[in-house]
């Protein structure tokens, strides 16, 4: 009943890590911690300091502000980076909608990680740019 070590395989298929070599993927897989969240469990808590950076490997999560769902996240999406980058508590809860499998990087390690993996930082920037574009479109 031992699960296959599929984290590296899943990561290899995610846009965020698409530019990494195989050994780099392995190193990243060992740097992040695997975490599971059950349905209804909070991962990020609105207004709480000290949150971390998460990448979803499997499952679905809701972004909720004051209890209102604003977005849904799935495989390959990441969250927590805004809070970590700005050093501020998250402005939303992130709640698992069904069992959620993530990899997590400690908030204080995120800056060093991004600087030492510039291609991941670039991919993250691209994803943020898309989010910003979509948000602007939605508003206009």
């Amino acid at each position: 009943m031992v699960e296959r070590d599929d984290i590296v395989e899943i990561m290899a298929g995610l846009a965020l890590f698409a530019d990494l070599t195989r050994p780099q993927l392995q190193a990243v897989a060992h740097t992040f911690e695997e975490e599971w969240f059950e349905e209804g469990q909070r991962i990020l808590r609105q207004g709480f300091s000290g949150s971390n950076f998460y990448v979803i490997l499997d499952g679905e999560a809701a972004v909720r502000i004051d209890g209102q769902t604003r977005a849904t996240l799935g495989r390959g999406d990441f969250f927590g980076e805004v809070s970590v980058l700005l050093g501020e508590p998250p402005t939303a809860d992130v709640v698992a909608l069904r069992p959620l499998r993530c990899i997590a990087l400690a908030g204080p390690e995120t800056e060093h990680f991004l600087i030492s993996h510039p291609r991941v930082m670039f991919r993250m920037l691209q994803a943020q740019a898309r989010r910003l574009r979509n948000a602007n479109r939605w508003r206009s």
Binding site: E33, G50, S51, N52, A104, G107, P108, E109
Partner: peptide, 10 residues
């Protein structure tokens, strides 16, 4: 069981 994992600490 890692709790809130504040600042990465579990």
């Amino acid at each position: 069981s890692v709790g809130l994992r504040k600042y990465g600490g579990a």
